[in-house]
Write a protein that binds this DNA or RNA. Structure first.
Length: 904
RNA sequence: GCCCGCUUAGCUCAGUGGUAGAGCGCCCGCCUCACACGCGGGAAGUCGCUAGUUCGAGUCUAGCAGCGGGCACCA
């Protein structure tokens, strides 16, 4: 059999995914056990316009590990893929395309534009979904969903209608976040606050003289501070705090609003902070959320001075009308200056709102929008929030989630776009609103055919909020819904806990009556090597596909699984080390396969325990320990622990020790039951390790597992035997620990062998014995069992220490010219070095050793001398300390006699 | 302003009150018949600072500093 010396990931990645997919391994139907437990995940639907970034790759890896793990455990597993129509982003992308043809969406009209978007989606969309095949994601493609699908759209209409009928959705004129670029309203969550260096302008408004109509004292005025002077054109009051002595007498009087000739009142409002600025606030109800609220309280008129393009309206008169808000600002300031009403301008840092997609400065604008009352649903979610969902890690996300629910606000759900779910509301000629599941239903309800549908669409998150049940067929009580809802776990990023996670909770509880998922795993953030978040604008992202190409998918997945919930700086070194690990696996298997004649997986470890040597018992104990740790770690979502365990088991225990210890028997050229037993044991361990590794490294494990002698359909999990098209490791049984194979004794004894070998190697290295040169190894142990162990392992010890001879005695009887060392447990070792040893140097080496022991002994003795420790520490800790002191004493004595021996 | 997280070896990160760990990098020696993407050996840390709780603190508490994040904003 030709096996290359280096693992080539491409080759494995290309062939196995297509086969798994074709054979239906990803669909839950492959499981024919009617009593099988269920495991389900819905994917956080990626944006249809997006392409794969590290954050996706991270989430997908975790989801795939869980899904493959549960599948191998015999669960009926569903990982449902799909994508989000991403209203604004998609519309913007297609509009950009149109612009290249010198067209706007208005040239096409709504219907043709929406057709164009669908075309675009067919052609260019869904990149991420395609790229998931590359990742090895075991999603059920037959259940792929899109938020604009007919079924999901129906769910959206159903929810909207029901909420409306319950009075939880309402339409009205309110001040909202308006993006002048995208020409749509946004919810509070889609707006980023950004701190900005700007100016605070102090403007003087003249006060109307007391009792004298239309006369204004030249020196009496009130000064207001503002960051947005242009909005003064829309002021309808100035507010002061009622307790503010400075202004008390002015309350109720009138101001002449400069540049407009309008008269506006001075009002009193508690919300005004006397400490800030001048203590007097200009009030622009039409263009500021706080002023809007104040306007409501005092019944102030709203004067619209800025339009939806962020330009000044006709209202502002010929000087300003049509000007951009920033131009208008300059002009207003200039005028105030000319009039001598600009008191001062100071530097000031403040927060502005930007659209989280296009970064345009948000304009607070009053407009007619649809809103959803969230308080009731939030309370429902809060009622269960201590139990579900369980956030992983729970700190700090559970608190963040609850805090947000406790301070929830109404949700603006309408968007002035064409791409999305058009709001199922129709208007009669008389302006009556009919909300219905379809136009037909609306006509019936209205009793007329002359209806106009509301042109707006719903916020994309409105449909995403229904994702865990709309994808499973809701509002129909489908089989899938009954089987897979609630889903088991949600894996997502922290920045959409409010936008998405909390909304799914609320909608799920309200419309299905159950939480949409029990657990929520919040992944870490992957940053660049300088600790900056990866972002398109900084262009500092690492492309997962490039990493796959360079190091292989399996290696990349190991890195991602290790990241889990930790914020991490991306580092190619780590991927490289896991690529090396993949290569190590490949070569370990290569070694086994080069010695495979007579070997059968599963054979060497069944019913033949009498034949097991120490290292066999040891590796089985280690393997079972690793098996239980890995299973447990995955269940706890501690993927990095699972990866660590697998890495060290495979590399350290299996490759460095077990293979090396088995080598002599395994590579014997002559056929014998002993050889074939050893080979079969080796293969059995390898085979189980591959199964353990599979959820993390699906490609290399499948590639190798297929090649092992004796793997086949009999290793499939019983749930899949009927439907599986052939043996595959992804449907094999995930190993479960067998407690009866754990052996503390074997691990302890093997540890002694390992330590012994390490000490001899250390001596050889420090004494500069050439690697090719053989030396004798003399071992003494006063414990008879250990002597037996060393004797049994004598040839293996010789092999791994390049010893010409290994002798095991009760007393160390070494020539004076020997290098010596003390191992734990009363074991001593000597390597005779006739003519090679420098006695002074050797004495020094032993004395250094003695010093180290001395230090530790002092620390322990101090501890034991402390009465408090003896009394209050757990008894086992005290015993432990005493045992260690005793061992150190033994070793010190041994070192002492070694030093004596050198003197002779 | 309020809340939260992080600070451990040169770098990236684990660490469950009881002898400080890994990978990469570094130093020495090896192409030893699976693997140089490898093998063997080794060096390297007042666990951010200060106080406290405890027989015992990297781990628990408080304060401080630096970095990062979230929420709410005062015009």
């Amino acid at each position: 059999m030709e096996i290359p010396k280096t693992y080539d990931p491409k080759q494995a990645e290309e062939q196995h995914y297509a086969r798994w997919e074709k054979q239906g391994c990803f669909a839950p139907e492959i499981n024919r056990d009617p009593a099988a437990p269920v495991f389900s995940i819905v994917i956080p639907p990626p944006n249809v316009t997006g392409s794969l970034h590290m954050g996706h790759a991270l989430q997908h890896t975790l989801m795939d590990v869980m899904t493959r793990h549960k599948r191998m455990l015999g669960y009926r597993t569903l990982w449902l893929p799909g994508e989000d129509h991403a209203g604004i982003s998609t519309q913007v992308v297609v509009e950009r395309e149109l612009r290249k043809e010198k067209l706007s969406r208005h040239d096409l009209g709504r219907e043709r534009f929406v057709e164009r978007v669908w075309q675009w989606r067919e052609q260019y969309g869904s990149q991420i979904i395609q790229q998931m095949r590359r990742e090895g994601a075991s999603v059920d493609w037959s259940r792929q969903r899109f938020t604009m699908d007919e079924g999901l759209s129906r769910a959206v209409r159903e929810v909207f209608v029901r909420l409306y009928e319950e009075g939880l959705i309402y339409r009205g004129d309110y001040i909202v976040n308006w993006c002048p670029n995208e020409q749509t309203a946004l919810s509070d969550l889609e707006v980023d606050k950004e701190s900005q260096h700007g100016k605070l302008y102090y403007l003087q408004y003249p006060v109307r003289a007391n009792g004298r109509a239309h006369e204004y004292g030249s020196d009496e005025h009130i000064t207001v501070a503002t960051t947005r002077p242009e909005t003064m054109l829309g002021d309808t009051a100035v507010a002061v705090n009622p307790t503010d002595e400075r202004y008390r007498d002015l309350i109720g009087r009138t101001l002449l609003l400069p540049l407009t000739g309008r008269e506006i009142p001075i009002i009193a409002d508690e919300a005004v902070d006397p400490q800030f600025g001048t203590g007097a606030v200009k009030v622009t109800p039409a263009h500021d959320p706080n002023d809007y609220a104040m306007g409501e309280r005092h019944g102030l008129p709203q004067v619209f001075v800025i339009d939806k393009f962020a330009r000044m309206t006709e209202q502002t008169g010929p000087d300003f009308a049509g000007l951009d808000r920033l131009k208008a600002r300059e002009k207003v300031v200039e005028r105030f200056s000319e009039l001598g009403l600009l008191e001062k301008v100071v530097d000031y840092e403040f927060a502005i709102s930007r659209c989280d997609r296009c970064r345009t400065v948000i304009e607070p604008l009053i407009s007619t929008q649809w809103f959803c009352r969230m308080k009731g649903m939030a309370e429902q979610a809060l009622a269960v929030a201590d139990k579900e969902p369980r956030f992983v890690p729970d700190v700090p996300w559970q608190k963040v989630y609850k805090d947000w629910l406790e301070n929830i606000h109404d949700w603006c759900v309408s968007r002035q776009l064409w791409w999305g779910h058009q709001i199922p509301a129709w208007y009669t000629k008389e302006g009556k609103i009919i909300v219905a599941r379809s136009e037909e239903e609306a006509r019936l309800a209205a009793g007329t055919d002359e209806l106009t549908q509301d042109p707006d669409v719903l916020d994309t998150w409105f449909s995403s909020a229904l994702w865990p049940f709309s994808t499973l067929g809701w509002p129909n009580q489908t089989n899938d819904l009954q089987t897979f809802y609630p889903t088991s776990v949600l894996v997502t990023a922290r920045d959409i806990i409010f936008l998405w996670v909390s909304r799914m909770m609320m909608e799920g509880l309200k419309f299905v009556g159950q939480v949409p998922f029990h657990d929520v795993v919040i992944t870490g953030t992957i940053m660049d090597k300088h600790g900056q978040r990866m972002s398109k604008s900084k262009n500092n992202g690492v492309d997962p596909l490039e990493v796959f190409d360079k190091y292989g998918v399996d290696a990349t997945r190991l890195v991602l699984a290790s990241i889990g919930a930790t914020d991490t700086r991306w580092n190619d070194n780590q991927v490289e080390s896991y690529r090396n690990f993949a290569n190590k696996i490949w070569n370990a298997a290569r070694f086994c396969l080069l010695n495979s004649e007579g070997a059968i997986v599963g054979r060497g470890f069944e019913g033949e325990r009498d034949e097991w040597a120490l290292h066999d018992r040891w590796i089985m104990s280690r393997l079972n320990r690793a098996t239980s740790e890995v299973n447990e770690a995955i269940e706890k979502y501690q993927f990095h622990e699972a990866v660590q365990t697998l890495y060290h088991f495979f590399w350290d225990d299996f490759c460095d020790w077990y293979i090396e210890l088995s080598k002599a028997e395994v590579t014997a050229t002559e056929e014998s039951p002993a050889r074939d037993g050893a080979r079969s044991r080796l293969f059995s361990v390898l085979e189980q390790a591959l199964r353990l590794l599979h959820p993390f490294m699906p490609f290399i494990t499948e590639e190798l597992w297929q090649r092992l002698p004796g793997t086949g359909a009999h290793l499939l999990h019983p749930a899949y035997r009927e439907a599986a098209a052939g043996p595959t490791v992804m449907l094999a049984e995930y190993p479960q620990a067998k407690p009866e194979l754990l052996s503390e004794q074997a691990e302890r004894e093997m540890q002694a062998v390992i330590e012994l070998i390490s000490r001899v190697r250390n001596i050889r290295s420090e004494m500069n014995i050439r690697p090719g040169e053989q030396a004798r190894v003399l071992i003494s142990a006063n414990d008879a069992d250990l002597r037996e162990v060393f004797t049994q392992q004598r040839s293996r010890i010789a092999r791994l220490t390049r010893a010409s001879e290994v002798s095991v005695r009760e007393q160390l009887d070494a020539p004076r010219a020997s290098a010596r060392a003390v191992v734990a447990g009363g074991v001593e070792v000597a390597v005779p070095l006739e003519g090679l040893i420098d006695f002074a140097q050797e004495r020094e080496r032993l004395m250094r050793e003695q010093e180290k022991l001395q230090k530790e002994a002092e620390r322990l003795e101090a501890q034991l001398a402390n009465q408090q420790f003896i009394e209050r520490a757990p008894a086992e800790k005290v015993t432990e300390a005493r045992e260690r002191v005793a061992d150190i004493a033994r070793r010190t004595t041994a070192l002492q006699s070694m030093l004596e021996a050198l003197k002779q």
